[in-house]
């Protein structure tokens, strides 16, 4: 589960954006199914056994989304049965299922994004555009946990003196307010020392550079090109109208022309790319280990 996380952030960002754009804006059953399968496999590879814990949540959500659409949307020409005098149509049911696939797929991809694109990668990517921003964000990320810890300490110290430590709402609000005021002084005091430490290390001179630990390897370049290529194919497909798919009034047939197959295959490969990388690495590792 390390292979994808160790790629250069620029490639990772491009990759996530490509997949998310297709899975959010293309409502085509094949592409959506591919995105969902890719998302499931990726999350499983990232989290291992922990991923299994969320299955219940996703299944419930899936059913809820899938059921909601036919209950409220009565378009379509093939009624299955009537509920309170309203038709529940096949088209609406199928569209509901597609919506559910889309929602779960996007959720899973966002989860993977959160696991992979840690704050330092984000800062690295956007810090170049706005040099100050990367430092400010980094300082904020440093400050927040320190603030929370100190605020907990003050709260406990006040509690141990029995000041406003009752369970009533007025006591609690008063206590929060007092702690907050004390924390303002603390923050200012802390900021003074931090700024002394910054000045002592030459902050404020002209020509500051931005350092990062990331390196761009040749393999990152290859992957970036591949990723862009696989992304462009569905986009071209969309431009030619291959990926258009409508449910109402009647569900379209899934296209099986060679061009359509190419689009499906390209996006399928894109969606499965991280999983393929993880599997490849696992196999490589096993080979190494067996040689040892």
């Amino acid at each position: 589960m390390k292979a994808f996380a160790n790629i250069h952030p620029l490639v990772e960002m491009t990759y996530f954006m490509s997949v998310l754009i297709v899975s959010m804006f293309f409502s085509h059953p094949v592409l959506q199914t591919e995105a969902l399968i890719g998302g499931i496999l990726f999350c499983a590879a990232l989290q291992g056994k922990k991923a299994a814990r969320d299955i219940g949540f996703y299944l419930t959500l899936f059913l809820m989304v899938a059921v909601t659409n036919p209950l409220f949307s009565h378009n379509g020409v093939t009624p299955l049965f009537f509920l309170n005098g309203n038709p529940v149509t096949l088209e609406a049911v199928l569209y509901g299922v597609l919506l559910a696939v889309t929602v779960i797929g996007v959720l899973l991809w966002c989860k993977a994004y959160g696991e992979i694109m840690t704050s330092d990668k984000f800062l690295y990517l956007f810090g170049k555009a706005i040099p100050k921003l990367s430092l400010v964000l980094s300082m904020a990320l440093r400050f927040i946990p320190a603030y929370l810890r100190q605020s907990r300490r003050v709260s406990r110290a006040q509690k141990a003196m029995g000041l406003y430590s009752g369970k009533s709402i007025t006591d609690r609000v008063k206590n929060q307010a007092r702690v907050f005021i004390a924390m303002i002084s603390w923050s200012l005091e802390n900021a003074m020392e931090t700024s002394a430490s910054m000045k002592a290390r030459g902050y404020g001179k002209k020509g500051r550079t931005n350092f990062s630990l990331f390196r761009f390897y040749a393999s990152d370049g290859v992957l970036l090109c591949l990723c862009l290529l696989l992304f462009m194919i569905p986009i071209m497909g969309a431009a030619c109208g291959i990926t258009r798919f409508t449910f109402y009034p009647r569900v379209d047939k899934i296209e099986t022309t060679p061009a359509a197959i190419v689009v499906y295959a390209a996006f399928g490969m894109l969606a499965l790319l991280p999983f393929i990388l993880e599997v490849k690495e696992a196999i490589v590792w096993n080979c190494y280990r067996s040689k040892i």
Partner: peptide
């Protein structure tokens, strides 16, 4: 309070970044 950034490696690099 002397630590400026959120990561150890970034903190080490901070002074040199300032020097350009």
């Amino acid at each position: 309070s002397q630590i400026v950034t959120d990561k150890v490696w970034h903190e080490l690099a901070f002074g040199l970044e300032n020097m350009g």
